[in-house]
Amino acid sequence: MLIKFIEFIGAVIEKPLLGLGRIILLLGATLKGTVRPPFEFRNLVNQMLQIGVNSLPVVLVTAVFTGMVLALQSYTGFKRFGAEGLVGSVVALSMTRELGPVLTALIVTGRAGAAMAAELGTMRVTEQIDALETLATNPVKFLVVPRFLSGMIMLPALTAVTDIIGILGGYFVTVILLGSSSKTYLRATWDYLEIQDIYSGLLKACFFGAAFALISCYKGFYTSGGAEGVGRATTGAVVFSSMTILISDYFLSAWLFK
């Protein structure tokens, strides 16, 4: 009975533990590859374009509408007790501390994370990763490191754009559509926004960028089972990355804003 129970526990935790072990090893190999030459500059620039520049349109749309709806909701709410003058601070603080990094990370995961897992997964099942190794090329260094670094660099950059565009979206709704004073909005934005709000948000974005890239690469790198496997890896990458972003967001926030 006891043996059976232990066997059951073992069977349940075997796969997650194997995954955890692999992801830690992949992180170690990635960090090692980051500091050791030769550096894959061309691949890095390529990935920065893929993750950063190509994600820009969808990030812009998300940012502007998030800022707009945030302003609209807080304006109607705050009006009930005559605090509509504070809409600017609500938008600025929400965007920089929370919505900027998290929404950008989720959007980029859906776009670039899925693409990473699908691309690496296809390379795995069509033996292209094996081919890299036979050509004396370390696949982690060649494929994972540039994606990991671009995630870490480009997500804070995109978040900065989201923050600014979100605040402008809020301005548009509050001042132009709802007729509030421009001066009040801008003062509320500047007076209550501290530098720590901005950099802690960017720091979170940096962590989210590293996390989604590592998870997506891991899912792609260990794909097996043909086209179906690639599909599974892609879905897994998006779900696992999104969960990691949302859960770690709480703990990072608790730590950064304590």
């Binding site: 069509t126 292209q128 081919a131 190794e133 004396a136």
Partner: peptide, 13 residues
Amino acid sequence: RKKFGMLFQSSAL
């Protein structure tokens, strides 16, 4: 590995 060349079943280009 630099001494080797390998042709894969699926070509792996």
